[in-house]
Every structure is written in C-alpha cells, then in structure tokens.
Amino acid sequence: MELIIEEINRGKKLIGRHKFATHEVQIGRGYHNDMILSDPHVCANHISLKNVNDEWFIEDLGSINGTTIGKTNKISHSQKIQSGDVIQLGKTQLRFILPAHPVAASVKFSAVENVVEKLGRWSIIMVLLAVFSGLNILFMYLNMPSKEINYNSLFLWGFGLTLGYALWPLFCSLMAHLNKQETRISDQLGVTFLIINMFWIIDFLEAFLGFNGSNTWSGQWFTLLLAVALTYTMFWFNFYIAFEQTAKRRVKFALGLTTFIYGSLFVYDLSNQPEFKAYPVYNSTIMSPTFAIASPISPDEFISNSDTLFEKVNKESNEK
C-alpha cells in the first residue's frame, strides 16, 4: 500500500506532498534518503518507514533530537502509523496519510465565486477605477470657487485619492500572502472598487432625500443603514477572497470590523460635540432645479409646522 507524506508548517499549512509506492522509505538529511530534509536539527539517517503486511511502521534510527508522534510521544521502538498521524523530527513536521483517507466533499463553484472572478478581470477593474477617479475629479471641479482651474493638481488629487483607496484591497492581498494564501489582487481591487463606487449612489440618495424631504423624513437613517450594509458587504468579500475560513468566522470578522469603524466614527463625533451649541444645526442640502421634485408647501403650512419646534424647545427650557 502506498504512503503519502505531507510536509506541513507549524500552522498546519501544507508545504509539500509526496507519494511513495515502495515498501521502505528513508527520511533524513543525508542525500541517500528517499525524502531529503534540510532542517539542521534532523540527522543524516533520522527515521525509517517500513511496509509490513499492508501496514506502515515507523522507527527512529537513533537520532540526536529524536522523533515525536502526536503531541509528545517519543518514538523509541518500531510503531504502527495511523492515517493522519503527525510526527515531528527536528523542527520539521510531517503528516502521514494512507490512500484510504477520507476527503471532504467537493465544493461547487458558488455564485459568489463567479461574481468575484468576473469583477477580477482587468478590463472591469479599469472601468471601476475610471468611474471612481472621474467622479472625484468632477466633484472637485464643480466645487472650485474660482474661474482659473489648475487641472494638474485636480488630476493629481483625483488619482492620488484613487491610489489611497486602493491601499485597502492591496493590504488584504498582502494579508492573504502572509497567510500562505493566493493574493488575488485583481479580485480584491474589483470587488472593493465596485462597492466604493456604490457609495456614490448613497451620497446621491442622501442629498436627494435631504433636499426634497422635510425634517419629518429626510431618510438619514435609511442612508446610514445602507452605508453600514455596504461596508459590511465589502469586508465580507475582502475576507472571502483573502482567507479560507468558515462562513461563520467570516461573518464575525466582517461584522466586527464594520462595528469597529462605525463605532469609532460615532464616538469621535460624540466627543467632538461642544457642550452647548449656540448655533443652529440644520440640513442645508440644495440641488439644482432638475432634482427638485417635491411639491412646495405654502408659507402658512411651513409656519404651522413650526408649532412642533416651539413646543419642543419650550419643553426643554422647562427641564432646566
């Protein structure tokens, strides 16, 4: 019966895999071995594996540092190997697998995977980056209060901003790389910039509702909720692409990071509030006449609505 030997690192990640169809396998640092290790703590002749009656046995050949099987068992005599056993010799870890070892069920290509793959195409990424930079530059241009426009700095800023935002997906790829996972830079870029671009829609919605709505409903909670959901979705995809982890763990991580970010923003906002605001805080959003769809109310109605305001502050002044 064949024997499969997997080299694994300390994080139990696979480094190399070998299959032996012989009846004997020698492992050590010496070049005559069947499996040659470069670990300096391993002896030239370290262990020997033998197949007897379709069962494999391990034996330590009197090495200086010895060999352990499982957590702590030192191998002192010939010992039978179970499929899945992990041994340590020197600082090297090896896992033995027999051909009958069960494997996990195959994973079907998921819809998510398909989407990620599509977004990861460079043509799509270019379009997404262009939309992001373009809109940024457009808004910077619209807000320029002077007749003379320095296009150089405008474009420099626009592209600089895009580069800044690209740091996050690149960071995710780096983390994947450090975890011995595929970097998938293009997938990260594609997904991240698709979602960042979707924030433009939220911005527009917020302005549109704030402009056309009244103080009774300007949709602030609605747009905030959308923004939080979108942020969560982005992190979920970033983790999906970067790490192999269980669905539960991914949700936990994405939720945690989203909560952390919006929580910090909230706390920052709270700590920046003055003790007493002597100035009014109001929604001053206005948009060009094209977007003014709300039918105007009369001054009479507007003023009778203000009864509520007077009531509110009156109540507040009584609570001194």
Binding site: F211, N212, S214, N215, S218, F276, K277, Y279, P280, V281, Y282, N283, S284, T285, I286, A292, A294, S295, P296, I297, S298, P299, F302, I303, N305, S306, T308, L309, F310, K312, V313, N314, E316, S317, K320
Partner: peptide, 30 residues
C-alpha cells in the same frame, strides 16, 4: 437658552413666483 431645533422644507408662493428650500430654527429662553 436651549439649543436650536430646526425644520426644513421646500416652500413656494401661490403665484409660483419663487421656490425655496426654507429652514426655520428656534430656541427658548430658560
């Protein structure tokens, strides 16, 4: 005084001679 409470709305005159985004804020003396 209390802090301001504000309201905003799109307002217009009957003869449609103007359309405004109007904001009104009030605060009460304690």
């Amino acid at each position: 005084v209390t802090e301001f409470e504000c309201q905003h709305d799109i307002t217009g005159l009957e003869d449609q001679s103007i359309k405004n985004k109007s904001i009104l804020c009030v605060r009460a003396y304690k």
